[in-house]
């Protein structure tokens, strides 16, 4: 049984670039953040010779800004990118697809609709964990950073977050809580990627490097590319 498959260029370079920068930034942010919360290593000797915690906080800040710039760039690419780079939560088809995909994942139906890009459920996960969670973690993070420079720009722009959550202790708490959202997301994400690649043999994994996915050629005409 041979299935004709054709190559489709799905993930443009900016999307792949965003993806890997994001992956790197989130990993480093998670690890440095957890260390700031729970400093487990002990530095011996005199304090003058060390700046370990200071450096961890420094890199946490650097990657936080990389993460933010990257997300802003991706926001722009929703507008500038190809069909697969978009997220259209307001469309009826989106929610119809969400239902079919849900049925597929819960084994209620055997086959799923072919997706070269993301299915609706995947997009919803991105929306909640990466975009909404990301937005909140940025706001809480900026609010905490801003406190160090009371008359600085960051404090002026994001100082309102602290009174909104009553006190900075809660800001910190929420920041930690959201960080775990990224960990949960990663587990689901990796699992779904491998699963998809194995079951449909469509090159999902390699597509994040070279941008190409495979689809049944009969589907080609149905989804005309812009």
């Amino acid at each position: 049984m041979s299935i004709l498959r054709s190559q489709v260029y799905v993930w443009e370079f900016p999307v792949r670039f965003f993806h890997w920068v994001n992956a790197l930034a989130i990993t480093i942010l998670f690890l440095t953040g957890m260390y700031i919360g729970h400093p487990i290593l002990d530095t011996p000797g005199e304090a003058v010779g060390h700046f370990f915690m200071g450096r961890v906080r420094y890199w946490h800040g650097i990657f936080a800004f990389i993460f933010m710039a990257n997300m802003l760039f991706r926001l722009y690419w929703f507008w500038a990118g190809n069909e697969y780079s978009k997220m259209r939560l307001w469309k009826k088809e989106f929610w119809r697809d969400a239902v079919t995909t849900f049925k597929y994942y819960t084994f209620m139906t055997r086959e799923h609709a072919e997706h070269v890009g993301h299915n609706a459920l995947a997009q919803l996960m991105y929306f909640f964990f990466v975009w909404l969670g990301g937005l909140l973690i940025m706001l809480t993070g900026l609010a905490m950073r801003g406190g160090s420079d009371p008359n600085g720009t960051i404090q002026t722009l994001f100082g309102w977050v602290v009174p909104l959550l009553r006190n900075e202790y809660q800001v910190r708490n929420l920041h930690h809580f959201l960080a775990w959202g990224f960990a949960v997301f990663l587990i689901g994400h990796l699992y779904m990627v491998f699963r998809q690649d194995i079951l449909d043999d469509d090159g999902t994994i390699s597509s994040m490097i070279n941008g190409y996915k495979f689809e049944l050629s009969s589907q080609n005409n149905k989804k005309a590319r812009p």
Binding site: P39, L41, D42, T43, A47, V48, G49, H50, F51, F52, M53, G54, R57, G147, S148, P150, N151, G159, W160, V162, P163, E168
Partner: peptide, 28 residues
């Protein structure tokens, strides 16, 4: 401040002016 406190006194975190801050940054 944004929390309704006189800025001259309450704009800084205790942590940011703490005498032990050097040890925090060193990881001690």
């Amino acid at each position: 401040t944004n929390q309704g406190r006189p800025k001259a006194f309450y704009e800084h975190r205790v942590h940011d002016n703490c005498v032990r801050r050097a040890f925090f940054d060193a990881g001690q």
